[in-house]
């Protein structure tokens, strides 16, 4: 599939900015935290050893910093199709406010913050910046993640 030379108009950009996802909730399970920590290869006992975790500043088991990436199904329905066949993750910026613990119910909502276009080797590339806010069952924001998606 070929990539268009130009894609994004100012009108489309304005339509996209502010689009918000439906909320998605993840129940944080102890086993999921352990599987995630194993998958990233991080043996830190605060993820898998209750006794050691109690002595940490968290006072108990917590999830690794990037664990909330496993909240899936947060879909942004743009008013137009991002008609590119390829996608890349451009980067992420996490801010942390509260630890994420087993038993938490974390609700994620994503919002489009910016959309820009650049011309790359293969034609037009669209950069979409989204901000995902993660809130726990106590209505505390535990983290925000600003992410850049590159479609090309």
């Amino acid at each position: 599939m070929s990539t268009p030379a130009t894609f994004l108009t100012e009108e489309m950009r304005q339509q996209a900015i502010g689009v918000e996802s439906q909320p998605v909730t993840l129940e944080v399970e102890k086993g999921h935290i352990q599987r995630f920590a194993e998958a990233i290869g991080d043996p830190n006992p605060v993820y898998n050893d209750e006794a050691a975790a109690r002595k940490s500043s968290y006072g108990g088991l917590v999830a690794p910093p990037t664990f909330l990436r496993s909240v899936r199904g947060v879909n942004l329905e743009l008013p137009f199709e991002l008609s590119f066949s390829r996608r890349l993750d451009g980067g992420s910026d996490w801010e942390y406010f509260q630890p994420v613990r087993p038993g938490d119910r974390i609700t994620a909502v994503a919002r489009v913050a910016e959309m820009t276009e650049r011309t790359g080797r293969l034609g037009a590339m669209v950069f979409m910046t989204t901000i995902t806010t993660y809130t726990n069952q106590f209505d505390e924001v535990v983290a925000t993640q600003t992410n850049t998606l590159i479609a090309y």
């Binding site: 605060v46 940490s56 500043s57 990037t66 980067g91 801010e95 850049t148």
Partner: peptide, 13 residues
Amino acid sequence: GPQGALKRLQCQY
């Protein structure tokens, strides 16, 4: 370590 806390982590791929 166990007494520190991460506030922000940012990177570009």
